[in-house]
Design a protein around this nucleic acid. Structure first.
Length: 108
DNA sequence: ACTTTGACTTCGG
DNA sequence: TCCGAAGCCAAAG
């Protein structure tokens, strides 16, 4: 699965009222350290719950109007903030780690 | 093939 | 808590 597609699929799994971070999404997609590619995917794709993806520690990394909009949208979903950051303790979404149940034998 | 570009992250001071 | 430097990775130009 192409990196960008995996990332997008991962982001779509974040439930309403929950949030995650760039780094976490990258890891959950199988590409630790690819936080910046998460950004690239978010920018190119449309119709994603982009407001649920934050920076490390729950910080909004968007500047200007976009930042306000993101915060507004999150609050509308019931997400609470601690100062400038999202209250991760209460809203961070943990992706299921390794669901290995369906391992099918790949043939070359 | 090389350089630039990001809504990043982590570590020190 | 804030700031800068260094590390990180893939897509675009």
């Amino acid at each position: 699965m192409p990196l960008q597609s995996s990332i997008i699929a991962t982001i779509r799994r974040i439930p309403r009222g929950k949030v995650s971070t760039y780094g976490a999404v990258a890891r959950a997609s199988g590409y630790p350290g690819a936080a910046r590619q998460v950004v690239a995917a978010l920018r190119k794709s449309v119709n994603l719950p982009w407001q649920r993806v934050l920076g490390a520690g729950g910080a909004i990394k968007l500047r200007g109007e976009s930042g306000f909009e993101q915060r507004f949208r999150l609050e509308a979903e019931g997400v609470t903030f601690r100062g400038r950051k999202v209250d991760m303790k209460a809203h961070e979404y943990k992706f299921p780690k390794k669901s290995r149940a369906l391992k099918k034998k790949a043939r070359t």
